[in-house]
C-alpha cells in the first residue's frame, strides 16, 4: 500500500533518548518526551530529587538532548528563578527554563520555594509530574496521595484518610499568568499547553497526572488507559487558568463513574462501597464548583 502524506500529530523531533531508566510504562517518562517536543531545543531542565533523577540516567550519561540541572529535592523553583535571572542578564532571555518535579518536590518539600517563585511571578515553567506519592524512595504517601490510596506509609489497613491537596487551587490563588493540567492520554492538548506556556512571560505551572505502574499497582500497559479514565471520570479535569481568574475547561467528558478509574488500580483495592460513593460525591461536588467558575 502506498500512503497519503503523513501529517505528524505532534512535533517529530525527539529530545529524549531511549535507554532511560524509567520503569516500563512510566507516565512520567512519556510526559517528558511530550514536553520537550513542545518546548524544543532551546530549553533547560531543572530536576530535583525524584524518579526523574534516576530516569535521566546516571553519570556520565543523560537521557535528554537539552541541558539538565539536577538539584536538591526542595529547590526546583528557586534554582529555576536564579537560572532564568542569569540567562536574562546574559542576554539569553529566549531560553525556556523548565523546573520538572514530582509531587513530593512540589506539594510538599518544594512547596515553599514554588510558592515564593509563583508570588514573585518568576519567568519560568514549573511542571509537576504527579504520580501521587514518593515513588523514588519506594512509594510513600505525599500530600498529593488521594483519599483511600495505599502506599507503604498508608498501609492496607490504614489507607490515606485525607484528600489530595488542591495544588491547582493553591497556584490559582497565586494568580500566576498561566496554569494548566495535562494528561499523557491527550498528547495534542498536552503539547498545545506546553507551547502556550512557552509563549507566556511570567510564572507558568503545569500539573501532569502521571501514572506509575509499580506505585499504582497497575499493569505496565495501562498507563494511558488510566490517564484517560481519570479525565473521563472527571477526577482529573483538563483545564487552563489564566491569572487565577479565567478558567477554561478543555474537555467536557460525559462523566463515567469513578469506579472505572479506581478499579483499574491495585492501590485502591481496599476501598469500600462507601468510600467509592464518597469519592464520587467529592468528584461531583468539585466538578460542579469548577463549572460554576467557568460560567
Amino acid at each position: 500500500m502506498n500512503h497519503v502524506d503523513i501529517q505528524p500529530r505532534i512535533p517529530e523531533p525527539e529530545l529524549m533518548y531511549s535507554g532511560h531508566l524509567a520503569c516500563p510504562g512510566c507516565g512520567a517518562s512519556l510526559a517528558m518526551r511530550y514536553a520537550l517536543k513542545a518546548l524544543g531545543k532551546n530549553t533547560m531542565v531543572i530536576i530535583p530529587a525524584c524518579c526523574w533523577s534516576i530516569i535521566a540516567g546516571p553519570f556520565p550519561y543523560s537521557a535528554l538532548d537539552v541541558p539538565i540541572y539536577h538539584t536538591a529535592f526542595e529547590t526546583a523553583a528557586a534554582v529555576a528563578s536564579g537560572m532564568k535571572a542569569a540567562l536574562d542578564q546574559l542576554g539569553k532571555s529566549d531560553v525556556t527554563v523548565m523546573a520538572w518535579a514530582g509531587d513530593g518536590g512540589t506539594y510538599d518539600i518544594g512547596f515553599q520555594a514554588l510558592s515564593g517563585a509563583a508570588e514573585r511571578n518568576e519567568d519560568f515553567l514549573y511542571v509537576c509530574y504527579d504520580n501521587e506519592a514518593y515513588m523514588n524512595t519506594g512509594i510513600q504517601r505525599s500530600s498529593s496521595t488521594p483519599f483511600g490510596a495505599w502506599t507503604t506509609t498508608t498501609p492496607e489497613n490504614h489507607t490515606k484518610e485525607r484528600p489530595k491537596k488542591d495544588i491547582v487551587g493553591i497556584l490559582a490563588a497565586h494568580r500566576i499568568p498561566y496554569l494548566a493540567t495535562v494528561s499523557v492520554a491527550y498528547p495534542e492538548d498536552f503539547i498545545r499547553k506546553f507551547q502556550k506556556a512557552k509563549s507566556i512571560r511570567g510564572m507558568k505551572f503545569i500539573e501532569i497526572l502521571s501514572p506509575c505502574p509499580p506505585g499504582w499497582k497497575t499493569a505496565d500497559d495501562q498507563s494511558i488507559r488510566i490517564s484517560r479514565l481519570a479525565v473521563e471520570s472527571r477526577i482529573f479535569p483538563l483545564l487552563e487558568i489564566e491569572h487565577g481568574e479565567k478558567y477554561t475547561l478543555n474537555l467536557e467528558p460525559e462523566g463515567i463513574s469513578v469506579r472505572d478509574y479506581l478499579e483499574a488500580q491495585g492501590r485502591f483495592k481496599k476501598l469500600s462501597e462507601k468510600d467509592v460513593e464518597h469519592i464520587q460525591k467529592e468528584v461531583d461536588r468539585k466538578w460542579e464548583a469548577l463549572k460554576k467558575r467557568i460560567s
Binding site: 533547560m44 531543572i46 540541572y69 538539584t71 536538591a72 526542595e74 529547590t75 523553583a77 528557586a78 534554582v79 529555576a80 528563578s81 536564579g82 537560572m83 532564568k84 535571572a85 542569569a86 540567562l87 542578564q89 546574559l90 539569553k92 515553599q112 520555594a113 510558592s115 515564593g116 508570588e119 514573585r120 518568576e122
Partner: peptide, 21 residues
C-alpha cells in the same frame, strides 16, 4: 531575586551560576 528563604537564596545562586552568571 527576593527569595523567600536562605535555602532558596542559595538555590537561586546555584541556578544562576550554573547558567554562567
Amino acid at each position: 531575586i527576593k527569595v523567600e528563604s536562605e535555602h532558596s537564596a542559595m538555590a537561586s545562586c546555584m541556578g544562576a551560576s550554573a547558567a554562567g552568571g
